[in-house]
Simulated scan of single mutants.
Amino acid sequence: MQVREPLSINSVDTSISRSIQLESAVPPSTISYLSSGEFVGMVAEDPDCKIKLKTFHCEILNDHDVPKKEEANYKDIAILIKIDTSMVQRNYLQIKQDIQEIMQFEMERLLMIQDWLI
C-alpha cells in the first residue's frame, strides 16, 4: 500500500487529498524487459523475522548440453496400428449411433414409467 497526497493550488484555494493505493510489487515495465530465464519477485516477511532484501531479480542458469544428450538417446515410438481418416470416421459414426440408441432406450423407459404412474 502506498499513501499519496496530491496537492492542488489555484487562485482561490489550496486542497490536499489523501488516498491509499495498492501498487504492484514489481511494475509491469520491469517484467516486460526481462529476458528468457529471468524472473523477479518479492517475498513476504514474518513480523518476528524481518528481511532486509525482500525483492529479487534472478536468472535460471540451464546447462543446455544435458537435454541435448538426453534427446540423442530417445527412440522412436513403435507404430502399433496405423490409423487413417476412414477409421476415424467409422469410429465417430459408431459412437454417434451408440448415443442415439442409448437416448432412444432411455426415452422409451421413461415413457413406460410415465404410463405406469398414470
Rank of each mutant, 00 (worst) to 15 (best):
A44P: 00
Q100C: 03
V26C: 03
Y74A: 02
D115L: 10
E59R: 14
I77T: 13
A78Q: 11
M107D: 14
I118N: 05
L117Y: 04
E108Q: 09
I9K: 12
P27R: 10
E71T: 02
L61I: 14
D63L: 05
Y92T: 01
C58Y: 05
Q100H: 13
F39K: 07
S86T: 10
S32R: 14
I16R: 07
G37C: 06
S36R: 10
I81Q: 09
V40G: 00
V66T: 13
K52W: 13
N73Q: 13
M103Y: 14
L61P: 06
Y33L: 15
K68P: 00
E45Q: 11
C58V: 12
L111K: 06
T30W: 06
I118S: 02
L53H: 11
A44W: 02
I79L: 08
S15F: 09
I81G: 02
L80P: 01
Q114W: 00
A44C: 13
E70F: 01
F105D: 15
C49I: 09
C49K: 11
L61Y: 12
I81N: 11
E38Q: 15
Q94I: 04
I51Y: 01
D46Q: 09
F105Q: 15
N91Y: 02
S35N: 09
D98F: 06
K96Y: 15
T85G: 10
V3L: 11
E45I: 04
G41V: 07
M1G: 10
D65R: 01
M107T: 13
E71D: 15
P47K: 14
Y92G: 01
A78Y: 07
I9R: 12
M42D: 06
D48R: 14
Q2R: 13
V66H: 01
D63M: 04
R4S: 09
M103G: 14
